[in-house]
Design a protein around this nucleic acid. Structure first.
Lengths: 357, 357
DNA sequence: TGAGGCTGTCGAATCGATTCGATCAAATCG
DNA sequence: CGATTTGATCGAATCGATTCGACAGCCTCA
């Protein structure tokens, strides 16, 4: 067998005795083709083992690839550990699936071939991306690729899907303030692509490119201007424990409340507190963010802000579709809902006295 | 501004005063081009706001899109809830990332435009796919797309990455048998794409298209031919609880041990057992599968088989690369490792007496 | 000085399909 | 029965880049 070349539409057309244009119509179904002709074309295709029009050629000709890129500035493993990201992805898929488009996972690290800038996508959704992506965004814009960003610094020609991170964090902080807390520490999400773990210094805060983390910090600072904190390297329970250990290490300057920037981190903080023999919420109040349904933390019920993650993804998906249809969708802003659990309590009297020292 | 058309390589070349072929060389970097010429071309590109060669055209010409499809026969939300799937994905990305290729998430449900069969991918990795995908696989084969399947029924021209599901499950069953258990129930992974929850009937078992689930059942049956069971609709803690409730409902015919087909399900079983006031492992032994690092189940330490999920993904990724390079990689079979936790114990005497009834 | 080897550049074919306008036959209408 | 509409099919241009072979200079070495 001489390993004949892969069949193409032209060869199928030739075998069927029709022109390529007719064969194309027979496959796409759009256009007047007699039933007999279509049958002949399909038969020829079957005989040649032809699988249908080549998607690559189609996408060139049509100018559409049917692929939507999702830029995740993180290792897949880390990104998907956070249920929020998965939920958003699912929301996007929900909406764009009807369009018959697949989601292409793009991570920034593919430095080699510059995979991000060379991806044949029709649109791109940026999830939790830092402003350091500006360069890539510029390329997408040049290419005329529709852009949607979930929780990012506002950018021209980028449809923004936002969350009230600042106000929501402020509400949590206020809740703690109302309970009498004054010594409050934060466990923050990564501030930049480097994702280094460490103390939350003014310097690190100023240099932050992480929009979500920064906004949440700002919200807290509106109530507790001088709150200290540490930065986690990823949103996970383990990382929360590690971060909390350093926050709670010194009994002398131990905070009475910890504001974790995600529920996963918050659970980690609870674990660290338990390790140290602290009772939650009696000795330490803890709040999270996201509203993940966590299991395994019973009897605790985390006080947190519940955010509509799937809805954010859906909105992004709808935005993509609207943009691809030439529409001008408007930015969407979601709000979080306060959930009062049992991980916060008033500051005990002896702590209260110690506070102003 | 007359909204001039998007620039292409030809227009850039014209502006730079060179031929398109030279301009192409200037961009690709492969080929002898004088520094001066390259600079002129790049300057022209900048002036026209040209973002570089169009990926769609490149992929047509080159016959490669640089995209690797990952077929997940499930809703994204459900698939990514299971850390095993995420780990595999991460492993794949690890290896193929060097190739500068992105991962395209393909779910079977995109019935509309037939997105799966029309995806411009160079290779496809099937994860946890049932044999009902045979049709799609045939299309990929026709297209000359490299195929790798993780845990699937062996197929021609599909590189198999396998796990010792049957032997591993048998080992777990044997462990329970050695402890004296005879009344054992299974909580199985979904048997087909329908993912219906329900009892594990002989009929359902025979009709199963889920390779992994079937293999694990068979392994158990080699020790406990008559074990009963239920089928879960997805691998998650909640679903494990739901499934376990029905398994443990009737005190008269309650099993003394439950074999869950995933650690997530197993944790769900533990929860259900605790709900019913059963002590684990004293009243009920429980084993899982996967070796997920689960938190929040302390003081329990699940007895399970630890499987190398990331390594499976890596092997798949390497297989993809080898196939794309025209190689003939060999099938890989991974083995699981037994982990003895504290969720299994000998059958108590009173139960033992009741058993032969 | 002439043959041979590089280098830099260009022409033209090619990847595989889509689509607009043209053509031609058959069917409908007045 | 001639004119017009309708339906099916075909030709040819087009999408945007890559790449092979050819060609012209220029340098080197005998």
């Amino acid at each position: 067998m001489p390993a004949r070349p892969r069949p193409n539409l032209a060869s199928v057309a030739a075998l069927a005795g029709v022109s390529p244009s007719t064969a194309s119509l027979a496959f796409s179904g759009s256009g007047p083709v007699s039933a007999a002709t279509r049958a002949r074309v399909l038969a020829a295709a079957a005989e040649l083992d032809y699988a249908g029009p080549d998607p690559r050629a189609q996408s060139l000709r049509r100018g559409r690839s049917g692929i939507i890129g999702v830029v995740i500035e993180d290792r897949l493993r880390d990104a998907f550990r956070d249920p929020m990201n998965v939920a958003m992805l699912d929301g996007i898929a929900d909406e764009t699936g009807s369009l018959g488009a697949g989601l292409l996972l793009l991570t920034e690290n593919g430095e080699g071939a510059g995979s991000i800038r060379n991806a044949p996508v029709d649109a791109v959704v940026l999830i939790g991306c830092s402003t350091s992506l500006a360069e890539q965004v510029a390329v997408f814009r040049q290419r005329g690729i529709a852009l949607v960003a979930i929780e990012a610094e506002p950018m021209d020609d980028v449809l923004a899907i936002d969350l009230d991170n600042r106000a929501a964090s402020k509400a949590l902080a206020r809740h703690l303030a109302d309970l009498g807390h004054t010594r409050v520490a934060m466990v923050a999400l990564p501030l930049d692509a480097a994702r280094a773990r460490g103390p939350l210094t003014a310097q690190a805060e100023a240099a932050s490119t992480g929009y979500t983390a920064s906004e949440r910090i700002r919200g807290v600072r509106e109530v507790f201007p001088d709150a200290t904190g540490v930065v986690a390297s990823v949103s996970s329970v383990e990382e929360g424990t590690v971060a909390a250990r350093s926050v709670l290490a010194d009994p002398a300057r131990r905070p009475t409340a910890v504001i974790a920037q995600s529920d996963l981190l918050a659970v980690g903080v609870i674990r660290a507190a338990e390790e140290l023999g602290l009772r939650v919420p009696r000795d330490l109040s803890i709040v999270g963010f996201d509203g993940v349904k966590l299991d395994g933390i019973a009897p605790h019920d985390l006080t947190t802000m519940v955010q509509p993650a799937v809805e954010k993804g859906r909105a992004a998906g709808r935005g993509v579709i609207a943009l691809l249809n030439g529409g001008h969708p408007e930015a969407v802003a979601f709000t979080s809902r306060f959930h009062l659990g049992n991980t916060t309590a008033p500051v005990p009297d002896e702590q209260r006295r110690a506070a102003p020292s």
